[in-house]
Design a protein around this nucleic acid. Structure first.
Lengths: 161, 161
DNA sequence: ACTGAAAATCTACGCTC
DNA sequence: GAGCGTAGATTTTCAGT
Protein backbone atom coordinates (compact mmCIF):
# COMPACT_ATOMS: atom_id res chain seq x y z
CA UNK A 1 0.00 0.00 0.00
CA UNK A 2 2.31 2.73 -1.21
CA UNK A 3 1.44 6.17 -2.49
CA UNK A 4 0.53 4.87 -5.95
CA UNK A 5 -1.95 2.35 -4.55
CA UNK A 6 -3.53 5.02 -2.40
CA UNK A 7 -3.95 7.30 -5.39
CA UNK A 8 -5.47 4.51 -7.49
CA UNK A 9 -7.99 3.87 -4.74
CA UNK A 10 -8.79 7.54 -4.52
CA UNK A 11 -9.35 7.87 -8.25
CA UNK A 12 -11.46 4.72 -8.53
CA UNK A 13 -13.64 5.83 -5.65
CA UNK A 14 -14.25 9.07 -7.50
CA UNK A 15 -14.97 7.44 -10.85
CA UNK A 16 -14.89 3.69 -11.17
CA UNK A 17 -15.59 3.69 -14.90
CA UNK A 18 -12.67 5.72 -16.14
CA UNK A 19 -10.52 3.72 -18.49
CA UNK A 20 -7.33 2.09 -17.34
CA UNK A 21 -5.57 4.35 -19.79
CA UNK A 22 -7.00 7.48 -18.24
CA UNK A 23 -6.14 6.20 -14.79
CA UNK A 24 -2.56 5.56 -15.88
CA UNK A 25 -2.30 9.00 -17.44
CA UNK A 26 -3.39 10.69 -14.22
CA UNK A 27 -0.94 8.65 -12.20
CA UNK A 28 1.92 9.20 -14.60
CA UNK A 29 2.60 5.51 -15.15
CA UNK A 30 2.22 3.11 -18.07
CA UNK A 31 -1.19 1.50 -18.60
CA UNK A 32 0.24 -1.97 -18.06
CA UNK A 33 1.69 -0.92 -14.72
CA UNK A 34 -1.60 0.58 -13.68
CA UNK A 35 -3.50 -2.53 -14.71
CA UNK A 36 -1.24 -4.74 -12.62
CA UNK A 37 -1.66 -2.48 -9.59
CA UNK A 38 -5.43 -2.53 -9.85
CA UNK A 39 -5.40 -6.31 -10.16
CA UNK A 40 -3.18 -6.64 -7.16
CA UNK A 41 -5.46 -4.42 -5.10
CA UNK A 42 -8.42 -6.51 -6.18
CA UNK A 43 -6.64 -9.79 -5.42
CA UNK A 44 -5.70 -8.55 -1.97
CA UNK A 45 -9.31 -7.56 -1.28
CA UNK A 46 -8.61 -3.87 -0.90
CA UNK A 47 -10.93 -3.13 -3.81
CA UNK A 48 -14.09 -5.16 -3.25
CA UNK A 49 -16.10 -4.16 -6.27
CA UNK A 50 -17.51 -1.33 -8.34
CA UNK A 51 -21.04 -0.07 -7.96
CA UNK A 52 -23.25 2.43 -9.73
CA UNK A 53 -24.61 5.16 -7.50
CA UNK A 54 -28.31 5.54 -8.23
CA UNK A 55 -30.65 8.39 -7.37
CA UNK A 56 -33.12 6.96 -4.85
CA UNK A 57 -35.79 9.49 -5.72
CA UNK A 58 -35.69 8.32 -9.35
CA UNK A 59 -36.41 4.80 -8.11
CA UNK A 60 -39.42 6.08 -6.18
CA UNK A 61 -37.58 5.66 -2.93
CA UNK A 62 -37.39 9.30 -1.93
CA UNK A 63 -38.21 8.81 1.74
CA UNK A 64 -35.40 7.55 3.94
CA UNK A 65 -35.27 6.81 7.63
CA UNK A 66 -33.05 5.39 10.34
CA UNK A 67 -34.76 2.88 12.60
CA UNK A 68 -33.12 2.11 15.95
CA UNK A 69 -34.15 -1.25 17.32
CA UNK A 70 -33.80 -3.18 20.54
CA UNK A 71 -34.22 -6.94 20.44
CA UNK A 72 -34.75 -9.41 23.29
CA UNK A 73 -33.35 -11.78 24.30
CA UNK A 74 -29.99 -10.33 23.30
CA UNK A 75 -28.52 -13.70 22.37
CA UNK A 76 -26.37 -14.69 19.46
CA UNK A 77 -29.00 -16.72 17.59
CA UNK A 78 -31.57 -13.97 17.90
CA UNK A 79 -29.15 -11.31 16.71
CA UNK A 80 -27.79 -13.37 13.84
CA UNK A 81 -31.21 -14.38 12.66
CA UNK A 82 -32.68 -10.92 12.93
CA UNK A 83 -29.76 -9.42 11.03
CA UNK A 84 -30.04 -11.94 8.22
CA UNK A 85 -33.77 -11.65 7.82
CA UNK A 86 -33.86 -7.91 7.95
CA UNK A 87 -30.89 -7.39 5.61
CA UNK A 88 -32.71 -8.94 2.70
CA UNK A 89 -35.88 -6.89 3.02
CA UNK A 90 -36.12 -4.72 -0.09
CA UNK A 91 -36.81 -1.59 1.95
CA UNK A 92 -33.52 -1.93 3.84
CA UNK A 93 -30.43 -0.26 2.37
CA UNK A 94 -28.11 -1.26 5.18
CA UNK A 95 -28.19 -2.73 8.65
CA UNK A 96 -25.84 -2.06 11.57
CA UNK A 97 -25.31 -4.24 14.62
CA UNK A 98 -24.38 -1.94 17.47
CA UNK A 99 -22.86 -1.81 20.90
CA UNK A 100 -24.76 0.41 23.27
CA UNK A 101 -28.33 1.42 23.93
CA UNK A 102 -29.68 0.21 20.61
CA UNK A 103 -28.92 -3.20 19.18
CA UNK A 104 -29.62 -2.47 15.52
CA UNK A 105 -30.00 0.48 13.23
CA UNK A 106 -31.65 0.01 9.85
CA UNK A 107 -31.27 2.47 7.02
CA UNK A 108 -34.42 2.19 4.95
CA UNK A 109 -35.66 3.87 1.79
CA UNK A 110 -39.27 3.72 0.65
CA UNK A 111 -41.61 5.50 -1.69
CA UNK A 112 -43.44 7.70 0.77
CA UNK A 113 -44.44 8.08 4.40
CA UNK A 114 -47.34 5.69 3.99
CA UNK A 115 -44.93 3.00 2.87
CA UNK A 116 -42.63 3.79 5.76
CA UNK A 117 -45.51 3.39 8.15
CA UNK A 118 -46.52 0.16 6.49
CA UNK A 119 -42.98 -1.16 6.73
CA UNK A 120 -42.79 -0.41 10.44
CA UNK A 121 -46.13 -2.01 11.13
CA UNK A 122 -45.91 -4.98 8.81
CA UNK A 123 -42.24 -5.90 9.04
CA UNK A 124 -41.15 -4.77 12.48
CA UNK A 125 -44.07 -4.56 14.86
CA UNK A 126 -45.06 -8.12 14.25
CA UNK A 127 -41.65 -9.52 15.20
CA UNK A 128 -41.70 -10.98 18.66
CA UNK A 129 -37.98 -10.46 19.24
CA UNK A 130 -38.29 -6.69 18.90
CA UNK A 131 -38.54 -5.08 22.31
CA UNK A 132 -38.82 -1.58 20.92
CA UNK A 133 -37.87 0.70 18.07
CA UNK A 134 -37.61 4.36 17.25
CA UNK A 135 -37.81 5.86 13.77
CA UNK A 136 -36.11 9.02 12.56
CA UNK A 137 -36.99 10.36 9.13
CA UNK A 138 -33.95 11.60 7.19
CA UNK A 139 -34.23 15.17 5.91
CA UNK A 140 -30.86 15.20 4.20
CA UNK A 141 -27.89 12.93 3.83
CA UNK A 142 -24.39 13.52 2.56
CA UNK A 143 -21.81 10.93 1.73
CA UNK A 144 -18.09 11.37 1.57
CA UNK A 145 -17.21 10.27 -1.97
CA UNK A 146 -13.63 9.31 -1.14
CA UNK A 147 -12.45 7.31 1.82
CA UNK A 148 -8.75 7.79 2.32
CA UNK A 149 -6.07 7.17 4.86
CA UNK A 150 -6.54 9.22 7.95
CA UNK A 151 -3.99 11.89 8.78
CA UNK A 152 -1.88 10.95 11.78
CA UNK A 153 -3.19 12.70 14.84
CA UNK A 154 -0.14 14.26 16.45
CA UNK A 155 0.91 12.44 19.55
CA UNK A 156 -1.88 9.90 19.64
CA UNK A 157 0.20 7.03 18.25
CA UNK A 158 3.45 7.64 20.05
CA UNK A 159 2.37 8.89 23.44
CA UNK A 160 -0.67 7.17 24.95
CA UNK A 161 -1.22 8.26 28.53
CA UNK B 1 -37.93 3.90 -16.78
CA UNK B 2 -39.05 0.70 -18.40
CA UNK B 3 -37.98 -2.83 -17.61
CA UNK B 4 -34.76 -2.50 -19.59
CA UNK B 5 -33.69 0.59 -17.68
CA UNK B 6 -34.42 -1.12 -14.39
CA UNK B 7 -32.32 -4.10 -15.39
CA UNK B 8 -29.42 -1.90 -16.49
CA UNK B 9 -29.51 -0.18 -13.13
CA UNK B 10 -29.57 -3.49 -11.36
CA UNK B 11 -26.59 -4.84 -13.29
CA UNK B 12 -24.52 -1.69 -12.92
CA UNK B 13 -25.14 -1.62 -9.19
CA UNK B 14 -23.83 -5.17 -9.02
CA UNK B 15 -20.77 -4.53 -11.17
CA UNK B 16 -20.11 -1.09 -12.53
CA UNK B 17 -17.01 -2.10 -14.46
CA UNK B 18 -18.47 -4.72 -16.73
CA UNK B 19 -18.12 -3.75 -20.35
CA UNK B 20 -20.98 -2.27 -22.29
CA UNK B 21 -20.78 -5.31 -24.49
CA UNK B 22 -21.24 -7.68 -21.57
CA UNK B 23 -24.11 -5.58 -20.29
CA UNK B 24 -25.78 -5.73 -23.69
CA UNK B 25 -25.31 -9.47 -23.89
CA UNK B 26 -27.01 -10.01 -20.54
CA UNK B 27 -29.88 -7.77 -21.55
CA UNK B 28 -30.28 -9.35 -24.95
CA UNK B 29 -29.90 -6.07 -26.86
CA UNK B 30 -27.28 -4.60 -29.17
CA UNK B 31 -24.32 -2.83 -27.55
CA UNK B 32 -25.25 0.46 -29.20
CA UNK B 33 -28.74 0.28 -27.74
CA UNK B 34 -27.36 -0.46 -24.32
CA UNK B 35 -24.87 2.40 -24.55
CA UNK B 36 -27.58 4.86 -25.43
CA UNK B 37 -29.72 3.67 -22.51
CA UNK B 38 -26.88 4.08 -20.07
CA UNK B 39 -26.17 7.57 -21.40
CA UNK B 40 -29.79 8.51 -21.11
CA UNK B 41 -29.95 7.28 -17.52
CA UNK B 42 -26.83 9.29 -16.74
CA UNK B 43 -28.18 12.43 -18.46
CA UNK B 44 -31.42 12.15 -16.52
CA UNK B 45 -29.51 11.84 -13.27
CA UNK B 46 -30.76 8.36 -12.43
CA UNK B 47 -27.18 7.09 -12.48
CA UNK B 48 -25.12 9.55 -10.49
CA UNK B 49 -21.71 7.95 -10.77
CA UNK B 50 -19.63 4.84 -10.32
CA UNK B 51 -17.56 4.18 -7.24
CA UNK B 52 -15.07 1.57 -6.13
CA UNK B 53 -16.02 -0.21 -2.92
CA UNK B 54 -12.95 -0.29 -0.71
CA UNK B 55 -12.27 -2.46 2.34
CA UNK B 56 -12.15 -0.05 5.26
CA UNK B 57 -9.97 -2.36 7.32
CA UNK B 58 -7.35 -2.30 4.57
CA UNK B 59 -7.29 1.48 4.86
CA UNK B 60 -6.72 1.20 8.59
CA UNK B 61 -10.24 2.31 9.27
CA UNK B 62 -11.54 -0.86 10.84
CA UNK B 63 -13.48 0.77 13.68
CA UNK B 64 -16.84 2.26 12.76
CA UNK B 65 -19.44 4.00 14.86
CA UNK B 66 -22.71 5.87 14.64
CA UNK B 67 -22.78 9.13 16.57
CA UNK B 68 -26.18 10.63 17.38
CA UNK B 69 -26.01 14.35 18.00
CA UNK B 70 -28.28 17.07 19.28
CA UNK B 71 -27.45 20.67 18.41
CA UNK B 72 -28.77 23.91 19.91
CA UNK B 73 -30.15 26.25 18.88
CA UNK B 74 -31.98 24.20 16.30
CA UNK B 75 -31.94 26.94 13.69
CA UNK B 76 -31.30 26.75 9.99
CA UNK B 77 -27.90 28.47 10.03
CA UNK B 78 -26.64 26.27 12.84
CA UNK B 79 -27.84 23.09 11.15
CA UNK B 80 -26.52 24.02 7.72
CA UNK B 81 -23.16 25.06 9.05
CA UNK B 82 -22.76 22.05 11.27
CA UNK B 83 -23.64 19.72 8.45
CA UNK B 84 -21.17 21.30 6.05
CA UNK B 85 -18.32 21.38 8.50
CA UNK B 86 -18.82 17.88 9.74
CA UNK B 87 -19.32 16.34 6.30
CA UNK B 88 -15.79 17.19 5.24
CA UNK B 89 -14.06 15.73 8.28
CA UNK B 90 -11.98 12.79 7.07
CA UNK B 91 -13.31 10.50 9.79
CA UNK B 92 -16.91 10.96 8.59
CA UNK B 93 -18.26 8.56 5.97
CA UNK B 94 -21.72 10.05 5.88
CA UNK B 95 -23.92 12.47 7.75
CA UNK B 96 -27.70 12.40 8.20
CA UNK B 97 -29.94 15.29 9.17
CA UNK B 98 -32.89 13.83 11.05
CA UNK B 99 -36.36 14.53 12.27
CA UNK B 100 -36.98 13.35 15.78
CA UNK B 101 -35.05 13.05 19.00
CA UNK B 102 -31.62 13.38 17.44
CA UNK B 103 -30.74 16.09 14.97
CA UNK B 104 -27.77 14.41 13.30
CA UNK B 105 -26.27 10.99 12.93
CA UNK B 106 -22.69 10.65 11.76
CA UNK B 107 -21.28 7.44 10.39
CA UNK B 108 -17.57 7.50 11.18
CA UNK B 109 -14.68 5.13 10.47
CA UNK B 110 -11.34 5.41 12.23
CA UNK B 111 -8.27 3.33 12.87
CA UNK B 112 -8.99 2.19 16.40
CA UNK B 113 -10.91 3.01 19.55
CA UNK B 114 -8.27 5.54 20.62
CA UNK B 115 -8.85 7.46 17.42
CA UNK B 116 -12.58 7.26 17.92
CA UNK B 117 -12.20 8.69 21.37
CA UNK B 118 -9.90 11.40 20.05
CA UNK B 119 -12.40 12.26 17.33
CA UNK B 120 -15.23 12.61 19.82
CA UNK B 121 -13.17 14.75 22.16
CA UNK B 122 -11.33 16.87 19.62
CA UNK B 123 -13.95 17.35 16.92
CA UNK B 124 -17.27 17.14 18.71
CA UNK B 125 -16.92 18.00 22.38
CA UNK B 126 -15.34 21.32 21.62
CA UNK B 127 -18.22 22.50 19.45
CA UNK B 128 -20.45 24.92 21.31
CA UNK B 129 -23.53 24.13 19.22
CA UNK B 130 -23.52 20.49 20.34
CA UNK B 131 -25.94 19.98 23.20
CA UNK B 132 -25.21 16.29 23.53
CA UNK B 133 -24.17 13.18 21.67
CA UNK B 134 -24.24 9.44 22.02
CA UNK B 135 -21.83 7.03 20.37
CA UNK B 136 -22.56 3.46 19.29
CA UNK B 137 -19.72 1.29 18.08
CA UNK B 138 -20.64 -0.83 15.06
CA UNK B 139 -20.00 -4.55 15.46
CA UNK B 140 -21.16 -5.50 12.00
CA UNK B 141 -22.70 -3.80 9.02
CA UNK B 142 -24.34 -5.18 5.91
CA UNK B 143 -25.25 -3.29 2.82
CA UNK B 144 -27.79 -4.23 0.23
CA UNK B 145 -25.80 -4.35 -3.00
CA UNK B 146 -28.75 -3.63 -5.26
CA UNK B 147 -31.41 -1.00 -4.75
CA UNK B 148 -34.41 -1.75 -6.88
CA UNK B 149 -37.98 -0.77 -7.32
CA UNK B 150 -40.11 -1.76 -4.37
CA UNK B 151 -42.81 -4.35 -4.83
CA UNK B 152 -46.27 -2.87 -4.62
CA UNK B 153 -47.72 -3.48 -1.20
CA UNK B 154 -51.11 -4.94 -1.82
CA UNK B 155 -53.88 -2.47 -1.12
CA UNK B 156 -51.70 0.35 0.12
CA UNK B 157 -51.85 2.35 -3.07
CA UNK B 158 -55.44 1.83 -4.07
CA UNK B 159 -57.29 1.60 -0.77
CA UNK B 160 -56.10 3.94 1.96
CA UNK B 161 -58.41 3.86 4.97
C1' DA C 1 -33.12 -0.35 -32.18
C1' DC C 2 -29.76 -2.76 -35.12
C1' DT C 3 -25.50 -3.29 -38.37
C1' DG C 4 -20.93 -2.46 -39.58
C1' DA C 5 -16.60 -0.28 -39.63
C1' DA C 6 -13.18 3.03 -37.80
C1' DA C 7 -11.04 4.63 -33.58
C1' DA C 8 -9.82 3.75 -29.00
C1' DT C 9 -8.79 0.69 -25.45
C1' DC C 10 -7.51 -3.52 -23.13
C1' DT C 11 -4.17 -6.74 -21.79
C1' DA C 12 -0.68 -10.62 -22.32
C1' DC C 13 4.05 -11.01 -22.88
C1' DG C 14 8.81 -10.19 -23.47
C1' DC C 15 12.12 -6.75 -22.13
C1' DT C 16 14.87 -3.50 -19.11
C1' DC C 17 16.26 -1.72 -14.85
C1' DG D 1 10.25 -7.70 -8.43
C1' DA D 2 8.34 -3.69 -10.51
C1' DG D 3 7.62 -1.03 -14.41
C1' DC D 4 7.53 -0.41 -19.51
C1' DG D 5 6.38 -0.84 -24.72
C1' DT D 6 4.33 -3.30 -28.21
C1' DA D 7 1.07 -5.94 -30.76
C1' DG D 8 -3.04 -8.63 -31.30
C1' DA D 9 -7.68 -9.05 -29.45
C1' DT D 10 -11.54 -6.65 -27.76
C1' DT D 11 -14.47 -2.80 -27.05
C1' DT D 12 -16.36 1.66 -27.82
C1' DT D 13 -18.57 4.77 -30.69
C1' DC D 14 -21.10 6.71 -34.34
C1' DA D 15 -22.66 6.68 -39.03
C1' DG D 16 -26.49 5.04 -41.79
C1' DT D 17 -30.68 2.21 -42.03
Amino acid sequence: MDELDAEIIRLLQTDARQSNRELARRLGVAPSTCLERVRSLTRRGVIRGYHADVDLAALNRGVQALVSIQVRPLSRPVIVRFKEEVSVLPEVLSAFVLAGGDDFVLHVAVQDLDRLHAFLLDELSKRKEIAGFRTSVIFQSTRNPVVGRLPETAGAASAPD
